Simulated assay, not measured.
Amino acid sequence: MPASSPHYVVLCRDVPDSASLRRAVLAEHRRYVDERADLIKLSGPLLDEDRVTRRGQLFVLEVPDREAAEAFIAADPFTRAGVFATVEIDPLLPIFGDGRRT
């Protein structure tokens, strides 16, 4: 059975050598996502194998439609600062979460 509200996976890959861009807007990005925490089911930076170097961002959003997911990521300070080289948005059918089937 589908979830009551649509979910979207937003997968962002950074431009090469984006560390300085990320640092420049990190505080603004954190404020942005904190203010929209009700839309975010899961989020965090993607890491290189060294588990330190950031190379992208993942969001699982619960929003009404794709347009809302697009608007969310378009307004993110990382997007506006040019941190992301690519952004993919895909619908997600949540089947498992919080340690159990939904």
Rank of each mutant, 00 (worst) to 15 (best):
I73D: 01
I73N: 02
V63P: 09
L46P: 05
E67D: 13
E49W: 00
V60H: 05
E28D: 15
V33N: 07
I73C: 08
L21T: 09
R22S: 07
V33E: 12
R55H: 02
P45N: 07
L47R: 03
R31V: 12
E67R: 08
D50S: 02
D76K: 08
E70V: 06
E70L: 08
E28K: 13
F72Q: 09
R23T: 12
P45G: 10
L39V: 12
E67L: 06
E67N: 04
A37F: 05
I40C: 11
S43R: 15
G56Q: 02
L47E: 01
V52M: 05
R31C: 09
D48V: 01
L42R: 13
A19T: 15
R54A: 05
A71E: 11
V33S: 10
Y32Q: 07
E35M: 11
V63K: 10
P45W: 03
L46Y: 09
E49V: 11
R30A: 15
R23Q: 12
L58V: 14
A27D: 14
V25S: 06
R23Y: 01
V52Y: 00
A19I: 14
S43Y: 01
P45Y: 02
F72S: 05
S43K: 11
I40W: 06
A74M: 08
F78I: 06
L26C: 11
E35I: 03
P45S: 14
L46V: 10
D65P: 05
D48H: 08
K41L: 15
D65S: 08
A68W: 09
D38P: 03
F59N: 04
Y32V: 09
S43F: 07
E62L: 00
P64G: 10
R55W: 00
V63N: 06
L47C: 04
L47A: 03
F78L: 14
S20D: 14
G56S: 05
D34F: 06
R51Q: 14
P77H: 07
V52C: 04
L21K: 14
R66V: 04
A71G: 13
R54V: 08
D76I: 07
R55D: 01
D34I: 06
A37P: 00
V25N: 07
L61E: 01
E70I: 01
L26T: 10
D38Y: 09
F59L: 09
A24G: 12
R54I: 06
P77V: 12
L58T: 13
F72H: 05
A27C: 03
K41A: 15
R54D: 00
V60A: 03
L26D: 07
